[in-house]
Structure formats: C-alpha cells, structure tokens
C-alpha cells in the first residue's frame, strides 16, 4: 500500500511537486499572518522554508539538488528548474511599460558592469586575504563571487585546480542563497521599492536565482525589472572575468 503510493508520487513527480509547493505556500502564509502579522512576506518565508528543506535534502542524499534529490520530491527539480523558471520570469514582463525600462536603462547597464566588477573584486580580495597568490586561483574565486556559473567557466578556461573551482562554485552559491534571504530584509534601507532601483539591483547582484527569489520575497511587482538586467549578468561575467579582469589581476599580483 505504502509502496504503491510511493511509486505513484515518483511517477507523477511534477504534479506531486505542485501539491507539495502549494502546501508549503499555505504554511508559509499562515506563519506570516500568525507570527509576523504579515510583516515578513509569506513568499519570503516560503523561500526560507524551501532553502531549509534543500539543506536537509542535500545533507541526507549528498546530492547537488537539495530536496529534489529525494525521490519522493524529484518533481521539484523540474518545477524549479531553469526551463519553467525562465518561462515564469518572462511571463512577469506582461503589463510592464517599456518607458519604465528605458528610463532606467542606462543606469541599469552601468550597474551591470559595476556589479560584475564589485563582486569580482570582493571575491578576489577574500582570496588574497586567505593567502592565495596564484592569479588563476584569485581570478577563479573572484569569478565565483560573480555567479556560481561564471566561477567554474572561468576556472576551466584558465586551467584552475578542481579545488579552486569547487570553492568558486561554493562562493557563488553563498551569494545566491544569501541574496534570497537578505533582499527582503535590506529592501527598505537600499530603497528597493520602485522599478528603477529594481533594475539597478538586478544589475548589481545579478545572480539570476538569487535576484528572482529575492525580489519575489520583497515585492513581486518588481520582479520583471530586476530580472531583465540580471539576465545579462552571467554572460557579461563570463565575457569579462577570464579576459580583462584576469589580465588586471595578473598585472597586480
């Protein structure tokens, strides 16, 4: 009986995931209402619950996909994977006024370049602080602080050791996950409450999943603006980190 139920959930994993996430959302909004009187968004709590479950899933299975590595919850991987996530992000653009995008466009592009450089420098400085002297290692860890995709791509291009590449991925994951949690908490202080600052935020932080979840937890109306700039961030990082930024690091070290 239990086995057949288990098989059923495994077979219809995406549908099961819809049910699991629906329950999670209900629980999160209940917590938000009951314990924070709506001060902390239900969506912010849902994302934190998701991250906590992902940690538990990763610890139990040792896999890379959080809770989705547990067979019973494998549908979460498809539901929260890149394909449906990007489809939903694009759908949020419906109803956006182009004027607002254009108005913040120049600042958004400036923020993009600044965001890649600032994150890279932050990661690079930490690497130097921990005693790394090899420019390849410093660049790779700096690139990891850009996003967890830029790190390994840069490391592979420059021929970094697998240890350093793993470190760069971990740095990018920390950035992404911290963004999900810290954005709703910091939103007031950084004026993240309008389309313009959302576009700049997307350019400064850039890590797509972090920006997507951080804005969802703050104010879902801001999602399309932040996502629009963030979508260029990883590509720009891959363009700059192994080339210009690496040359600068090699010149300085």
């Amino acid at each position: 009986m239990l086995q057949s139920l288990y098989d059923l959930v495994d077979k219809y994993h995406l549908v099961a995931a819809f049910a699991v996430i629906g329950l999670t959302m209900y629980l999160a909004y209940w917590i938000s209402e009951r314990f924070t009187r709506g001060k902390l968004h239900g969506s912010a709590i849902a994302i934190m619950l998701g991250l906590a479950l992902a940690y538990a899933g990763g610890k139990i299975t040792g896999g890379a996909d959080g809770l989705a590595d547990i067979t019973l919850f494998s549908g979460l991987g498809l539901m929260g994977g890149g394909m449906l996530r990007d489809l939903a992000i694009i759908a949020t653009a419906y109803g956006v006024r182009f004027d607002e995008v254009r108005e913040a466009g120049v600042r958004g592009v400036m923020a993009l370049f600044a965001g890649v450089v600032v994150s890279f420098v932050a990661g690079g400085l930490v690497a130097v602080g921990f005693g790394y002297t090899d420019p390849v290692a410093i660049t790779t860890i700096g690139a990891g602080a850009v996003t967890y995709i830029v790190g390994p791509v840069t490391g592979a291009t420059l021929g970094a050791s697998s240890e350093v590449i793993a470190l760069s991925i971990a740095a990018g994951l920390v950035k992404s996950i911290l963004t999900m949690i810290a954005t709703p908490l910091a939103a007031r202080w950084i004026g993240l409450d309008n389309p313009r600052s959302a576009m700049i935020f997307g350019g400064m932080i850039g890590t797509t999943s972090g920006v997507a979840a951080g804005l969802a937890a703050t104010d879902a109306r801001l999602v399309p603006y932040g996502a629009m700039t963030a979508t260029f961030y990883t590509g720009l990082g891959i363009l700059l980190a192994p080339t210009v930024l690496f040359l600068v690091v090699r010149g300085l070290v």
Binding site: F18, I21, G22, T24, M25, A28, S43, A46, I47, M48, L49, G50, L51, A52, L53, A54, Y55, G57, G58, K59, G62, A64, D65, G66, L67, A68, F73, L76, G77, M79, G80, G81, L84, R85, A88, I89, A91, T92, V126, A127, F130, I141, G144, A166, L167, S168, I169, A170, A171, L173, V174, S176, I177, M180, S209, A212, A213, A216, A220, V223
Partner: peptide
Amino acid sequence: MYIPIVVAMAASQNVAAALSGGAVA
C-alpha cells in the same frame, strides 16, 4: 506561478555545498 516556481527552485538549491565551502567561499 512565478512565486511557487521560485519556492521550488529554492528547495532544489545546493545549500549544503554552499555551507560546506569553508570560510573563503
């Protein structure tokens, strides 16, 4: 469906790896 999808995404992040990367990461 955007927010539910993002919650599913959060639940399938590699949080364990992020926290086991050590002080540098």
